[in-house]
Protein backbone atom coordinates (compact mmCIF):
# COMPACT_ATOMS: atom_id res chain seq x y z
CA UNK A 1 0.00 0.00 0.00
CA UNK A 2 2.87 2.38 -0.47
CA UNK A 3 1.04 4.51 -2.95
CA UNK A 4 1.76 8.20 -3.37
CA UNK A 5 -1.81 8.75 -2.29
CA UNK A 6 -1.20 7.14 1.05
CA UNK A 7 1.99 9.08 1.56
CA UNK A 8 0.31 12.34 0.71
CA UNK A 9 -2.50 11.53 3.09
CA UNK A 10 -0.03 10.85 5.87
CA UNK A 11 1.82 14.09 5.21
CA UNK A 12 -1.38 16.12 5.08
CA UNK A 13 -2.70 14.63 8.31
CA UNK A 14 0.69 15.05 9.93
CA UNK A 15 0.75 18.74 9.03
CA UNK A 16 -2.80 19.24 10.24
CA UNK A 17 -1.96 17.47 13.48
CA UNK A 18 0.94 19.83 14.06
CA UNK A 19 -1.07 23.03 13.76
CA UNK A 20 -1.38 23.63 17.53
CA UNK A 21 2.38 23.19 17.85
CA UNK A 22 2.98 25.74 15.13
CA UNK A 23 0.46 28.06 16.76
CA UNK A 24 2.20 27.72 20.11
CA UNK A 25 5.71 28.23 18.74
CA UNK A 26 4.77 31.34 16.80
CA UNK A 27 2.33 32.53 19.43
CA UNK A 28 -0.47 32.61 16.93
CA UNK A 29 -3.42 30.90 18.65
CA UNK A 30 -5.57 32.13 15.79
CA UNK A 31 -4.34 29.31 13.55
CA UNK A 32 -6.05 26.83 15.82
CA UNK A 33 -9.40 28.49 15.14
CA UNK A 34 -8.78 28.70 11.41
CA UNK A 35 -7.69 25.11 11.09
CA UNK A 36 -10.41 23.88 13.42
CA UNK A 37 -12.89 25.32 10.93
CA UNK A 38 -11.00 23.63 8.10
CA UNK A 39 -11.08 20.27 9.89
CA UNK A 40 -14.79 20.61 10.56
CA UNK A 41 -15.56 21.25 6.91
CA UNK A 42 -13.20 18.42 6.01
CA UNK A 43 -15.29 16.10 8.18
CA UNK A 44 -18.51 17.30 6.56
CA UNK A 45 -17.02 16.88 3.09
CA UNK A 46 -15.77 13.43 4.06
CA UNK A 47 -19.30 12.49 5.05
CA UNK A 48 -20.82 13.78 1.83
CA UNK A 49 -18.12 12.04 -0.19
CA UNK A 50 -19.33 8.64 1.00
CA UNK A 51 -22.45 8.98 -1.14
CA UNK A 52 -21.13 11.47 -3.71
CA UNK A 53 -17.80 9.88 -4.48
CA UNK A 54 -18.59 6.24 -3.87
CA UNK A 55 -22.29 6.12 -4.56
CA UNK A 56 -22.71 8.76 -7.30
CA UNK A 57 -25.49 10.37 -5.28
CA UNK A 58 -24.86 14.09 -5.69
CA UNK A 59 -26.61 15.60 -2.70
CA UNK A 60 -26.95 19.37 -3.06
CA UNK A 61 -28.47 19.65 0.38
CA UNK A 62 -26.08 18.26 2.94
CA UNK A 63 -25.76 21.63 4.68
CA UNK A 64 -29.17 20.69 6.04
CA UNK A 65 -27.50 18.15 8.36
CA UNK A 66 -24.82 20.60 9.42
CA UNK A 67 -27.72 22.82 10.43
CA UNK A 68 -29.43 20.05 12.38
CA UNK A 69 -26.23 19.39 14.31
CA UNK A 70 -25.69 23.07 15.03
CA UNK A 71 -29.27 23.62 16.17
CA UNK A 72 -29.16 20.49 18.36
CA UNK A 73 -26.35 22.13 20.32
CA UNK A 74 -27.91 25.59 20.12
CA UNK A 75 -31.45 24.73 21.17
CA UNK A 76 -30.43 22.41 23.99
CA UNK A 77 -27.95 24.97 25.33
CA UNK A 78 -30.65 27.61 25.09
CA UNK A 79 -32.76 25.50 27.43
CA UNK A 80 -29.86 25.01 29.81
CA UNK A 81 -28.80 21.50 28.77
CA UNK A 82 -25.01 21.68 28.51
CA UNK A 83 -24.13 17.98 28.44
CA UNK A 84 -22.29 17.12 25.26
CA UNK A 85 -23.65 13.56 25.34
CA UNK A 86 -27.19 14.94 25.36
CA UNK A 87 -26.30 17.20 22.41
CA UNK A 88 -24.77 14.28 20.56
CA UNK A 89 -27.70 11.99 21.29
CA UNK A 90 -30.30 14.55 20.27
CA UNK A 91 -28.41 15.61 17.14
CA UNK A 92 -27.88 12.05 15.94
CA UNK A 93 -31.45 11.04 16.73
CA UNK A 94 -33.00 13.98 14.90
CA UNK A 95 -30.45 13.58 12.11
CA UNK A 96 -31.29 9.89 11.74
CA UNK A 97 -35.01 10.52 11.50
CA UNK A 98 -34.61 13.44 9.10
CA UNK A 99 -32.08 11.62 6.92
CA UNK A 100 -34.18 8.47 6.73
CA UNK A 101 -37.30 10.34 5.68
CA UNK A 102 -35.56 12.77 3.32
CA UNK A 103 -33.33 10.01 1.93
CA UNK A 104 -36.25 7.67 1.40
CA UNK A 105 -38.05 10.29 -0.70
CA UNK A 106 -34.97 11.56 -2.55
CA UNK A 107 -33.56 8.17 -3.45
CA UNK A 108 -36.60 7.44 -5.55
CA UNK A 109 -34.91 9.72 -8.05
CA UNK A 110 -31.44 9.83 -9.51
CA UNK A 111 -29.15 12.08 -11.52
CA UNK A 112 -30.13 15.71 -11.84
CA UNK A 113 -33.51 15.10 -10.21
CA UNK A 114 -31.70 13.82 -7.12
CA UNK A 115 -29.54 16.95 -7.03
CA UNK A 116 -32.60 19.15 -7.16
CA UNK A 117 -34.77 17.26 -4.69
CA UNK A 118 -32.03 17.26 -2.07
CA UNK A 119 -31.69 21.00 -2.65
CA UNK A 120 -35.43 21.37 -2.19
CA UNK A 121 -35.37 19.68 1.19
CA UNK A 122 -32.42 21.75 2.36
CA UNK A 123 -34.28 24.91 1.31
CA UNK A 124 -37.37 23.83 3.24
CA UNK A 125 -35.38 23.32 6.42
CA UNK A 126 -33.58 26.61 5.82
CA UNK A 127 -36.85 28.54 5.67
CA UNK A 128 -38.16 26.65 8.68
CA UNK A 129 -35.10 27.60 10.72
CA UNK A 130 -35.49 31.23 9.63
CA UNK A 131 -39.01 31.22 11.04
CA UNK A 132 -37.93 29.82 14.44
CA UNK A 133 -38.54 33.14 16.16
CA UNK A 134 -38.02 31.74 19.64
CA UNK A 135 -34.52 30.64 18.67
CA UNK A 136 -33.43 33.89 17.09
CA UNK A 137 -34.85 33.28 13.61
CA UNK A 138 -32.54 34.69 11.01
CA UNK A 139 -30.23 36.26 13.60
CA UNK A 140 -29.28 32.83 14.89
CA UNK A 141 -28.73 31.62 18.38
CA UNK A 142 -25.77 32.43 20.60
CA UNK A 143 -24.39 29.49 22.57
CA UNK A 144 -23.11 30.29 26.05
CA UNK A 145 -20.42 27.63 26.38
CA UNK A 146 -19.06 24.63 24.53
CA UNK A 147 -20.66 21.23 25.00
CA UNK A 148 -19.69 19.62 28.29
CA UNK A 149 -18.13 16.19 27.77
CA UNK A 150 -17.02 15.74 31.36
CA UNK A 151 -13.30 15.10 31.58
CA UNK A 152 -12.54 16.38 28.05
CA UNK A 153 -12.46 20.13 28.50
CA UNK A 154 -13.48 21.52 25.13
CA UNK A 155 -13.26 25.08 26.41
CA UNK A 156 -9.52 24.78 25.88
CA UNK A 157 -8.88 25.49 22.20
CA UNK A 158 -6.03 23.01 21.84
CA UNK A 159 -8.03 20.21 23.42
CA UNK A 160 -10.97 21.12 21.20
CA UNK A 161 -8.74 21.04 18.13
CA UNK A 162 -7.36 17.63 18.93
CA UNK A 163 -10.82 16.33 19.68
CA UNK A 164 -11.90 17.36 16.17
CA UNK A 165 -8.70 15.93 14.74
CA UNK A 166 -9.29 12.62 16.52
CA UNK A 167 -12.81 12.44 15.12
CA UNK A 168 -11.46 13.13 11.63
CA UNK A 169 -8.83 10.40 11.87
CA UNK A 170 -11.30 7.94 13.38
CA UNK A 171 -13.76 8.65 10.58
CA UNK A 172 -11.06 8.20 7.95
CA UNK A 173 -10.19 4.80 9.39
CA UNK A 174 -13.84 3.85 9.69
CA UNK A 175 -14.61 4.94 6.14
CA UNK A 176 -11.64 2.97 4.88
CA UNK A 177 -13.20 -0.12 6.33
CA UNK A 178 -16.66 0.75 5.08
CA UNK A 179 -15.47 1.38 1.54
CA UNK A 180 -13.67 -1.94 1.37
CA UNK A 181 -16.40 -3.88 3.10
CA UNK A 182 -19.16 -5.77 1.34
CA UNK A 183 -21.37 -2.76 1.99
CA UNK A 184 -18.92 -0.43 0.30
CA UNK A 185 -18.53 -2.80 -2.65
CA UNK A 186 -22.27 -2.85 -3.20
CA UNK A 187 -22.36 0.94 -2.96
CA UNK A 188 -19.61 1.32 -5.54
CA UNK A 189 -21.33 -1.27 -7.64
CA UNK A 190 -24.47 0.86 -7.59
CA UNK A 191 -22.39 3.78 -8.79
CA UNK A 192 -21.16 2.00 -11.90
CA UNK A 193 -24.30 0.05 -12.70
CA UNK A 194 -27.19 0.01 -10.31
CA UNK A 195 -29.44 -2.08 -12.52
CA UNK A 196 -26.91 -4.87 -12.60
CA UNK A 197 -26.53 -4.77 -8.82
CA UNK A 198 -30.28 -5.04 -8.48
CA UNK A 199 -30.33 -7.92 -10.94
CA UNK A 200 -27.69 -9.65 -8.82
CA UNK A 201 -30.22 -9.59 -6.03
CA UNK A 202 -28.95 -6.75 -3.90
CA UNK A 203 -31.62 -4.53 -2.35
CA UNK A 204 -29.85 -1.45 -3.72
CA UNK A 205 -32.36 1.01 -2.30
CA UNK A 206 -31.67 -0.19 1.25
CA UNK A 207 -27.91 0.02 0.73
CA UNK A 208 -28.12 3.50 -0.72
CA UNK A 209 -30.41 4.68 2.04
CA UNK A 210 -28.05 3.32 4.68
CA UNK A 211 -25.13 5.13 3.04
CA UNK A 212 -27.18 8.32 2.83
CA UNK A 213 -28.01 8.19 6.53
CA UNK A 214 -24.41 7.48 7.55
CA UNK A 215 -23.22 10.35 5.41
CA UNK A 216 -25.84 12.67 6.88
CA UNK A 217 -24.87 11.70 10.43
CA UNK A 218 -21.26 12.64 9.77
CA UNK A 219 -22.46 16.07 8.70
CA UNK A 220 -24.58 16.30 11.86
CA UNK A 221 -21.45 15.73 13.90
CA UNK A 222 -19.62 18.38 11.86
CA UNK A 223 -22.49 20.78 12.49
CA UNK A 224 -22.27 20.20 16.23
CA UNK A 225 -18.56 20.97 16.12
CA UNK A 226 -19.17 24.09 14.04
CA UNK A 227 -21.69 25.32 16.60
CA UNK A 228 -19.15 24.65 19.33
CA UNK A 229 -16.39 26.43 17.46
CA UNK A 230 -18.37 29.57 16.67
CA UNK A 231 -20.57 29.33 19.78
CA UNK A 232 -23.39 30.11 17.43
CA UNK A 233 -26.09 28.35 15.44
CA UNK A 234 -27.56 30.12 12.47
CA UNK A 235 -29.76 29.41 9.44
CA UNK A 236 -26.87 30.59 7.28
CA UNK A 237 -25.18 27.26 8.01
CA UNK A 238 -27.94 25.72 5.90
CA UNK A 239 -27.86 28.06 2.91
CA UNK A 240 -27.65 26.36 -0.43
CA UNK A 241 -24.23 27.96 -1.00
CA UNK A 242 -22.95 25.97 1.98
CA UNK A 243 -24.05 22.74 0.29
CA UNK A 244 -22.34 23.96 -2.86
CA UNK A 245 -19.12 24.66 -0.99
CA UNK A 246 -19.03 21.07 0.25
CA UNK A 247 -19.28 19.78 -3.30
CA UNK A 248 -16.56 22.18 -4.43
CA UNK A 249 -14.29 20.86 -1.69
CA UNK A 250 -14.86 17.25 -2.69
CA UNK A 251 -14.39 17.74 -6.41
CA UNK A 252 -11.39 19.97 -5.85
CA UNK A 253 -9.77 17.38 -3.60
CA UNK A 254 -10.68 14.42 -5.73
CA UNK A 255 -13.95 12.64 -5.23
CA UNK A 256 -14.07 8.98 -4.55
CA UNK A 257 -10.77 9.12 -2.72
CA UNK A 258 -10.81 9.00 1.04
CA UNK A 259 -8.41 11.80 1.77
CA UNK A 260 -9.54 13.95 -1.19
CA UNK A 261 -12.25 15.86 0.69
CA UNK A 262 -9.79 16.68 3.46
CA UNK A 263 -7.34 18.06 0.94
CA UNK A 264 -10.12 19.91 -0.86
CA UNK A 265 -11.45 21.53 2.31
CA UNK A 266 -7.96 22.55 3.36
CA UNK A 267 -7.12 23.88 -0.09
CA UNK A 268 -10.33 25.83 -0.66
CA UNK A 269 -10.56 27.45 2.77
CA UNK A 270 -6.87 28.35 2.84
CA UNK A 271 -7.14 29.77 -0.65
CA UNK A 272 -10.09 31.90 0.43
CA UNK A 273 -8.13 33.07 3.45
CA UNK A 274 -5.07 34.02 1.41
CA UNK A 275 -6.99 35.67 -1.44
CA UNK A 276 -9.20 37.61 0.97
CA UNK A 277 -5.98 38.86 2.55
CA UNK A 278 -4.82 40.18 -0.82
CA UNK A 279 -7.92 41.84 -2.11
CA UNK A 280 -11.48 42.52 -1.20
CA UNK A 281 -12.41 41.36 -4.69
CA UNK A 282 -11.01 37.88 -4.06
CA UNK A 283 -13.97 36.17 -5.64
CA UNK A 284 -12.99 37.57 -9.02
CA UNK A 285 -9.80 35.50 -8.70
CA UNK A 286 -11.24 32.43 -7.00
CA UNK A 287 -14.02 32.03 -9.56
CA UNK A 288 -11.86 31.67 -12.68
CA UNK A 289 -9.35 29.66 -10.66
CA UNK A 290 -12.01 27.06 -9.95
CA UNK A 291 -12.93 26.99 -13.64
CA UNK A 292 -9.30 26.49 -14.63
CA UNK A 293 -8.75 23.77 -12.04
CA UNK A 294 -11.81 21.91 -13.26
CA UNK A 295 -10.76 22.21 -16.90
CA UNK A 296 -7.13 21.27 -16.39
CA UNK A 297 -7.62 18.42 -13.98
CA UNK A 298 -10.86 16.53 -13.85
CA UNK A 299 -9.82 14.38 -10.97
CA UNK A 300 -8.96 16.83 -8.24
CA UNK A 301 -5.76 16.99 -6.29
CA UNK A 302 -5.92 13.45 -5.03
CA UNK A 303 -7.39 11.98 -8.14
CA UNK A 304 -4.10 12.67 -9.87
CA UNK A 305 -2.21 10.92 -7.11
CA UNK A 306 -4.58 8.00 -7.23
CA UNK A 307 -3.98 7.65 -10.95
CA UNK A 308 -0.23 7.60 -10.33
CA UNK A 309 -0.67 4.98 -7.66
CA UNK A 310 -2.89 2.73 -9.68
CA UNK A 311 0.11 1.08 -11.29
CA UNK A 312 1.34 0.33 -7.78
CA UNK A 313 -1.71 -1.78 -7.17
CA UNK A 314 -3.40 0.69 -4.89
CA UNK A 315 -6.20 1.59 -7.25
CA UNK A 316 -8.77 1.66 -4.56
CA UNK A 317 -10.63 4.53 -6.07
CA UNK A 318 -11.74 5.45 -9.49
CA UNK A 319 -12.63 9.06 -9.49
CA UNK A 320 -13.92 10.95 -12.44
CA UNK A 321 -17.18 10.79 -14.17
CA UNK A 322 -19.82 8.18 -14.39
CA UNK A 323 -22.90 10.26 -14.21
CA UNK A 324 -23.74 9.81 -17.83
CA UNK A 325 -26.93 8.19 -16.69
CA UNK A 326 -27.85 11.40 -14.96
CA UNK A 327 -29.62 12.63 -18.01
Amino acid sequence: MRSPQLWAAAVLLGLLGLVPVYAAVFEQPFYITLFARILIFAIAALGLNLILGYGAMVSFGHALYIGIGAYAVGILSFHGVTSGWAHLGAGLAVGAVAATVVGWVCLRTSGIAFIMITLAFAQMFYFLSVSLKQYGGDDGLTIAARSDFGWVNLANNTVFYYAIFAVLVALLLLFRRIVDSRFGMVLRGCKSNERRMAALGFPTMRYKLAAYVISAQVCVVAGMMLANLTKFASPSFMQWQASGDLIVMIVLGGMGTLIGPVAGATGLLLLEEVLAGWTQHWMVILGPLIVVIVIVSNRGIFGVLAALGRTGGAGRARPGGTSGEAR
Partner: peptide, 29 residues
Protein backbone atom coordinates in the same frame (compact mmCIF):
# COMPACT_ATOMS: atom_id res chain seq x y z
CA UNK B 1 -14.38 27.75 -21.15
CA UNK B 2 -17.51 25.67 -21.24
CA UNK B 3 -16.85 23.96 -24.58
CA UNK B 4 -14.16 21.97 -22.83
CA UNK B 5 -16.62 20.58 -20.33
CA UNK B 6 -19.26 19.01 -22.56
CA UNK B 7 -17.72 15.58 -22.27
CA UNK B 8 -17.27 15.82 -18.52
CA UNK B 9 -19.75 14.68 -15.94
CA UNK B 10 -22.31 16.99 -14.45
CA UNK B 11 -20.34 17.59 -11.29
CA UNK B 12 -17.47 19.22 -13.16
CA UNK B 13 -19.96 21.39 -15.02
CA UNK B 14 -21.69 22.41 -11.82
CA UNK B 15 -18.37 23.27 -10.25
CA UNK B 16 -17.01 25.30 -13.16
CA UNK B 17 -20.21 27.29 -13.59
CA UNK B 18 -20.31 27.84 -9.82
CA UNK B 19 -16.90 29.46 -10.26
CA UNK B 20 -18.35 31.63 -13.02
CA UNK B 21 -21.10 32.83 -10.67
CA UNK B 22 -18.50 34.06 -8.18
CA UNK B 23 -16.62 35.76 -10.98
CA UNK B 24 -19.56 37.61 -12.52
CA UNK B 25 -20.97 38.75 -9.17
CA UNK B 26 -17.68 40.29 -8.21
CA UNK B 27 -17.09 41.67 -11.70
CA UNK B 28 -20.28 43.76 -11.70
CA UNK B 29 -19.38 44.95 -8.23
Amino acid sequence: ALIRLYQRDHLDQVLATFGLILFFNELVR
